[in-house]
Design a protein around this nucleic acid. Sequence first.
DNA 1: CGACGACTTTGATCTGCGTCAAGGCCGCTG
DNA 2: CAGCGGCCTTGACGCAGATCAAAGTCGTCG
Lengths: 249, 249
Amino acid sequence: MAQHDPHSFVHMNCGGCPIRHRAVCARCDATELTTLEQMKYYRSYQAGQTVVWSGDRMDFVASVVSGIATLTQTMEDGRRQMVGLLLPSDFVGRPGRAIAPYDVTATTDLVMCCFRKKPFEDMMEKTPHVAHRLLEMTLDELDAAREWMLLLGRKTAREKIASLLSIIARRDASLRLEQTSGQIVFDLPLTREEMADYLGLTLETVSRQISALRKEGVIGLEGKRHVIVPDFDRLSEETGDDSDGGFLN
Amino acid sequence: MAQHDPHSFVHMNCGGCPIRHRAVCARCDATELTTLEQMKYYRSYQAGQTVVWSGDRMDFVASVVSGIATLTQTMEDGRRQMVGLLLPSDFVGRPGRAIAPYDVTATTDLVMCCFRKKPFEDMMEKTPHVAHRLLEMTLDELDAAREWMLLLGRKTAREKIASLLSIIARRDASLRLEQTSGQIVFDLPLTREEMADYLGLTLETVSRQISALRKEGVIGLEGKRHVIVPDFDRLSEETGDDSDGGFLN
DNA sequence: CGACGACTTTGATCTGCGTCAAGGCCGCTG
DNA sequence: CAGCGGCCTTGACGCAGATCAAAGTCGTCG
């Protein structure tokens, strides 16, 4: 989804930390690269652990190395809405704001590459390319949020499920286990409840709609309930989105 | 809502174009200011006119001078969801992307201050403060979008209406007509249908809920239906949000 | 001023999804 | 291996909000 123009940031080191792919600029000089390298540190979380609570001080920014994290907002009476889904290489945290406006939670075991905020901000001042890249990433996220708003406000339960499966299958290649004869098999990393929080539904409705899609042969479930084999074309017909199913920007 | 840190961009000229308030940095030098001044031009639209169609090429970025514009997404069968509401001084357009991903429509008579995209991007390269400020604005919008997602996914019709009225009353001081004895009187610039598109409801439900709030004395309508006198405290109790009603970041 | 059109209100009815409840599957632990 | 806890499925029922329909308000233009 994220587009890279020829002058954008590049993948510097395949084996390394993804922050290099996302926040390090090809045009930065060696000193800047070294500064970034020295600043970074790693943190691990277990599935289910909370990374930051809404309202808490957040003194770092970070990039997901492996695993999945969610951003959620909770109302006083416990109603929850997921507002962000972070897959490997996604960025969390907001330069220039101290307080986290939502909970960040690890839904699987999670490793993040962190930078203390102050030094990171100082570096941004000196390295305009980083700010530029961050702007690009934030705009991508904003577009995704708006797509999500259409889903929440106007789609039916069935369309919501189909959209979610399409989005995940499209977005995270790392979840694709096999690709034989055009079929995409992937491990769905969310529980029914997490899907419900993503879609603004209850977990029962999610379950029912998934069963319905399975009975109709649009998707298939394998063994442990989380492995899904969608009939990709039929699935994207169900999303309610424009036919081609892709973003053509 | 937008916070200005001491080093942020400042209001340079009360009578002038709001792009100066938003995108011009106090620390920029005279040459940069002059460049910006020379680049800008104005466009006017009538209420109801479309500024850009989704999928069209958008070769400028702009700042709203006066009036109100909306960003909306439309599904093939006509279901519509508003995904952005632009009030004076808000910014539209995405440096680095050619195609508009949603319709931009003037809901009132509208004046925008525009910059052709290419020169604006070139200036961003040379003037890091502008990119920095733009990042800050985009992050604010992202936060607003996430708040909006909670509204769409989890709030009841009544809570949605109360939230919308609070948001508008809080956000746009220019709509406040009088403030006597703590009462805020403001002109609501949206039709029932536009509110419905904002909230993910039908216009009938919007109308019914507004009638209900009025009968209960939470809000009042004056003469032409668009002038509303909310009992602000009671209104914010209805939003479902945390009690204080404000963002305390 | 009358008629038209844009917008709003209100009522009657329908339905998709939420709620409540029971039971199934599976892995873990004693 | 029995019992337990987490997660998922399925059924029965109810309700918030959608849909369909009709009538009211108000500005405007001949």
